[in-house]
Amino acid sequence: MADAKPLPLRATGLVVSYGGAPIVDGIDLAVGHGELLGLLGANGAGKSTLLRAITGQVPPDHGTIEIGGHDLRRHPERAKAHFGFAIDPDELPAPLSARQYFELVAAIRGVEPMAPPIADAIERLQFGPWLDQPIADCSLGTRAKIGIVGALIGLPPLLIFDESLNGLDPVAAWEAKAMLRNLAASGHAVILATHVVETVPGLCTRAVLLADGGIGRTWRTDELAVASAPTFEADVMAALRGRRVAA
């Protein structure tokens, strides 16, 4: 029997270009409930551009993006209600405190700012002492934690993290990865763009490598399950070097 629930993300024939040069060139990508997708690629491969297009920050030249069954172009507000995006630390509202930022996001989403999952995430990521400090006074790592928790407010079906584990201390990084695993296990779709290749096999259920604006290579769940961190890393390096030589 076919699943009646629409997919958290379905992007079809996506083309995004800057100044006439295509950065993302004809990508088809679907992410299902319970998937934790690792997005890999060299600098400039198009990871952030793809995520910006998916989150409605840059317009695609061609293609469609459906989030939770809602077309992002035609119904942006409805589509955006179905994902949470960890804001880059530099883009957070600097004069507000983390608590005020959460209140702002929660009011927009129409949920409680300090509901149990958020309070739990704050405790696990250990930034309670900085909760009432202006974000401007916080370190890069603390701001990254605020961005991660902000994405979780309202627990939307699709959660997107663009290199959000960068700058986290080891404990926080470990806790963040555990949270992502739990979210995927509870049926949320999670996308994690990362350069930390060795974290992917133990964390993600699927991985794609972006190269030359397209999907260069995909690793299925069963391939990731048997891969160790060093073998996967070597595999990714070979794929990256191969693309570069071919290019």
């Binding site: 509202p93 600097a94 004069p95 405190s97 930022y101 702002l104 009011a107 927009i108 401007a136």
Partner: peptide
Amino acid sequence: ATARGLRIPGLAAIDRIGLPWFAAWSWGTQ
């Protein structure tokens, strides 16, 4: 953003109504 500025009584209460803290954010003040 870290500059303290002058506290105006009642301003935070007004800014907190509905969608909170938009004015403070847009002015770059606490």
